[in-house]
Design a protein around this nucleic acid. Sequence first.
RNA 1: GCCGAAGUGGUGAAAUGGCAGACGCGCCGGACUCAAAAUCCGGUACUGGCGACAGUGUGUGGGUUCAAGUCCCACCUUCGGCACCA
Length: 806
Amino acid sequence: MDLISIEKKWQKKWKDTRLYAFDRRNAEKKWYVLEMFSYPSGAKLHVGHWYNYGPADTYARFKRMQGYNVFHPMGFDSFGLPAENYAIKSGVHPQDSTMMNIATMKRQLRDMGATFDWDYEINTCMPDYYKWTQWCFLQLYGKGLAYRKEAPVNWCPSCNTVLANEQVISGVCERCKTEVTKKNLTQWFFRITAYAEELLSGLDRIDWPEKTKLMQRNWIGRSEGGEIVFPIKGGGEFTVFTTRADTLFGCTYCVLAPEHPLVKEIVTGEHRAKVEQYVSRTMKESEIDRLSTTREKTGVFTGAYAINPINGREVPIYIADYVLYSYGTGAVMAVPAHDERDFEFAKKYGLPIERVIRSNDGSPDPLPYVDYGVLIGSGKFDAQTSEAACRSIIEELGRSGRGILKVNYRLRDWLISRQRYWGAPIPIVYCKKCGMVPVPEQELPVLLPYDVDFTPDGTSPLAKHEGFMNAVCPSCGGKARRDADTMDTFVCSSWYFLRYPDARNSEKPFDKALIDRILPVDKYIGGAEHACMHLLYARFFVKALRDMGHLSFDEPFLSLVHQGTILGPDGERMSKSRGNVISPDAYIEQYGSDVFRMYLMFGFSYFDGGAWNDDGIKAIYRFLERVQRLIERAGSAGFRSGVDAKKELGYILNMTIKSVASDLDSFSFNTAIARLMELVNALYKHIEGSVTDEYTHHAIKSLVLLLAPFAPHFSEEMWEALGGPYSVFNQSFPICDESALALDRVEVPVQVNGKLRGVVLLPAGCAEEEARNIALADEKIASILSGMQVMKVIIVKDKIVNIIAK
RNA sequence: GCCGAAGUGGUGAAAUGGCAGACGCGCCGGACUCAAAAUCCGGUACUGGCGACAGUGUGUGGGUUCAAGUCCCACCUUCGGCACCA
């Protein structure tokens, strides 16, 4: 069987007849199936692409055959670092290499034979796309959701350049292995924290893997607590955030983050030199070092004292780098008896450790004791539980304006500036007279120039391009300079699913009425590695755009699945350096794309993936040949008399239909294919020689329809051979006839004292009394029970009989 | 350290608390063939027995239940995420 030329034949016909064209005017029964779009890397499609797109396409075809108007677009996430790094190494311009890679990948995706409608293709590095990425930026800016502030960036002192987080591999530069340091630059942020609460609560209403939702919950990191104001002895005050106000009486010192602006003001003469030295040393340290939990805690005394507002006690104020300026208020109250970090620090610097909580049940509770318990040594709050005191102490302080209940999130605002070339320019200019001015919408896009020197030398590549940098101030018409940075590529991918339905719109990023009909995405399929980046950013964008009135739904992706990872044959992640990369190409040349995708679906549990092993790939080929032989025989039809084919085949056929449909809905491709194999086995048993009949013929046609989503080219060919009208994908997916599943009699296992002892044939749905009698009368069961007394019989209808005897 | 997921034959893997190992791969046997390949049919968890059958089995140890791979507790191993978030 020449699967390769069969595939070519049908790919051409599908293309010529525009079989997979999506009619966006018809949003009735729409079904938006989306895979995370691809990054056009130089290499060919790898196993991971196939594992994502192959099964997802099978799902899309299934939905189509179920009568859905399936929207299944594809595009390219084509800005980003790899193209730029490749350019630095090879000298090939990112735009040239990217466009070439896209052409190659597109050809390969077509060879896959997927249902993508290329009329809706998008490409994020093209001006007609990034114009609207810039528009999104301006929208956020207009609502105060984009702002500029100074922040540290990763800096490689050897390459003399800024690095993105993903270029910092365990503290060193991915290219030259030099230790990465911090450098302060003024950069753009998106205020994703404004949506922290909704991003958290919205998770309860979407059908996503629990694991992914949990990761987002942890990432957002909501914690309930309170803010407490500590006056400073001699004037001034500062605020701390705590989740453990119940331990306030045990506070024996306070700590400010080294960056805290108050540090300069409160430090006293003799301590100034040491404090300044400590602060500057902290600044130099890399984030990795500073955030390492295993590192010993350090800090210095400022010479100043704070007054504990609950009991008026004076406590020393330290600075220490274990307190983060970016979380809470950048200042904490330290309770060494009930916090591990404070305990360690207090031990080291000889600070007092005072217990104010004991365990609820009086069980031994060595310090530091960090669980909730009962208050002691806390004045009128003694004997309150921790839970109660967390609230009552804040309320007490609130009366004098020194305490308030507060919720904090670990989520930080999203830093989107990249000191890089290959990205969407930030549509802002800086005018000496007018200051920061957004580029008006009608002047978009701010084009990314081609002739840019992107050799890394410590400045943003665009800063060296005078033609780009020089701009006219939209406000006063005077001379202005552009922002030299580009946007994080995650900005491009935060709204691409909104652009697909309206990809050719040159007036707007998308038409509201249109995307309100076609969005949200009904099934989103992609890797789990994006849990706290792309998948969070996209949710933020949708909520922000909704609040501006550009769309009217709350979540971009109603239902999400993650495919697993296919590992190398050695069980390790595939990588060039390990030399364990499996290329799909050789397999596809030999067996074709249907067999390859089917093997991926059959050989692995979709969500788990696993180590590559091609032992079973021949089995899939063999299976398709087996189907083909079956159809050849059916073609030379005759009639076998005296056999009720419907009775013989009806049950298995309808059971198969039911199972395959539900397995496809739950992405359980391996079991769906197993069911198809069972059906084929049953048909082989049923058909003797070349004789067949009408019902058998019906069963074989149904088999081809069931198989079509899995092996689209092959099934189209078989459908034609059976005389079916073009295309098999315009046929309805078979529907299960429930009446065929009703059996007269069922085999029911019989247990004695929980051990399987036999099987009896019972009338389906028979009463307990009858089941009991038949089971007890069974020859084998009776002999086991001889000499025993039956105490009880448990019967689950049509499932099991369990006889308790002694 | 904290959070989460997983651990099942020689092997990839299946099992709404109800016959563990479906469907494949591999292996063994048979048919077809001069022979081989391909194909078709049958067998295949482990231990004992010629056998019918019996016993034991889902990482380890306990528990709940008439019944546990599945639920609960503790532990071991592997993988993923977070990592001083007060």
